[in-house]
């Protein structure tokens, strides 16, 4: 898919974005509020009459494609029940050429966890329930391409990750998705590639880890608590560690409590405040994981704190230290340290 969008929102703000996505299933889109992400999605879906949209998907002009959009707000029709909302979308469904049964009515309702909501009216739903119904409704319309504008923000963590994992499978089975999100972990775990949008244009487009790292370096204050995702091949014999899964990352053995993303991919999210650094590599620690790595960068001091970027191979970690701790450890760029963190 390729697209080029030009949309003048005001004299100061113009969305001018282009990208070319090859063989993609799930692509992330992130950036500060007001960067133009929602405008871009609306323009791609054909909802901005003043936008000039050019592009093609599967050899077909974008303006002729069935492009679904899940809005930030659920926007369920209030005069209909949940079941009627879903039936309406189904009645106007097209043929997106997907042969798998992922988007059958029963599969969508079950995976979006809407079975028990069918008889309710939208006014009776909680924010998260309404978002799940809105997602189900968009999927039942059988689009060829699905745009998701922070579709699951109101869901609890475990439901969200279950639905996202399922969506990823749907995307891989032939319904490509472009997802806007501010959640670094979601983007990292579920997207093949990530676009970073700022001031109306797409500034970065790369694998999620690289884009997120550049975001952290360029906009340290806007991005909040830094999080890294470590990933690797799970080891076969994991029974001894109880619920923990061992996996190998940059030649070092780590363990995680998180469910496997796929049989050959284990992941571990590590937030900056969870990391303990030391330079005496022999002391045993109560933390489950230790990871040898090099100091790649040290941020300027803000509020007596510094962000340290750590790297080994292609894997990065982010640690947050007080100014005093930085002085105690006498860290400089290029030093090898031991990072310890929970599983």
């Amino acid at each position: 898919m390729e697209f080029s969008v030009n949309l003048r929102r005001s004299t100061q703000f113009v969305v001018q974005a282009e990208a070319s996505l090859l063989n993609f299933s799930m692509v992330g889109l992130t950036g500060p509020s007001g960067a133009g992400k929602s405008s871009l999605l609306r323009a791609l879906a054909g909802l901005e009459s003043y936008a000039s949209v050019r592009g093609q998907y599967n050899g077909q002009s974008l303006t002729r494609c069935r492009i679904g959009l899940v809005f930030q707000e659920p926007l369920l029709l209030p005069h209909q029940t949940v079941a009627q909302n879903l039936t309406l979308a189904q009645r106007y469904a097209g043929d997106n050429g997907m042969s798998s049964s992922y988007l059958s009515y029963d599969s969508v309702i079950a995976n979006c966890q809407c079975e028990h909501l069918l008889a309710h009216t939208p006014a009776q739903l909680s924010g998260g329930e309404a978002q799940r119904v809105a997602l189900a409704r968009a999927l039942l319309n059988q689009p060829q391409l699905l745009l998701l504008d922070e579709p699951l923000g109101a869901l609890d963590l475990s439901t969200r990750s279950a639905i996202l994992s399922w969506l990823k499978k749907v995307a891989e089975s032939g319904l490509p998705m472009l997802m806007v999100s501010h959640d670094v972990t979601d983007l990292w775990l579920h997207c093949q590639s990530l676009m970073f949008m700022n001031n109306g244009s797409i500034e970065l487009h790369d694998v999620p880890g690289e884009v997120i790292n550049t975001m952290y370096q360029r906009h340290p204050s806007a991005t909040g608590q830094h999080v890294a995702v470590l990933a690797g091949q799970p080891c076969k014999e994991t029974g001894s560690a109880g619920q923990l899964t061992s996996f190998e990352c940059e030649g070092q053995l780590l363990c995680t409590r998180q469910p496997l993303q796929s049989p050959d991919r284990a992941t571990l999210n590590v937030a900056a405040h969870e990391i303990v650094l030391d330079r005496a590599f022999t002391t045993p620690l109560s933390l489950d994981n230790t990871f040898m790595c090099e100091v790649e960068g040290i941020s300027p001091v803000v509020d007596h704190q510094v962000n340290i970027t750590l790297k080994r191979g292609k894997t990065r970690l982010y640690a947050m230290l007080s100014q005093a701790a930085l002085a105690r450890l006498a860290l400089t760029e290029g030093d090898t340290v031991r990072a310890s963190f929970p599983a």
Binding site: G46, I67, G68, F71, L75
Partner: peptide, 11 residues
């Protein structure tokens, strides 16, 4: 925006 929803459903 309810009409936008309808538009994306190709109504």
């Amino acid at each position: 925006r309810f009409l936008d929803v309808g538009y994306t459903f190709k109504m």
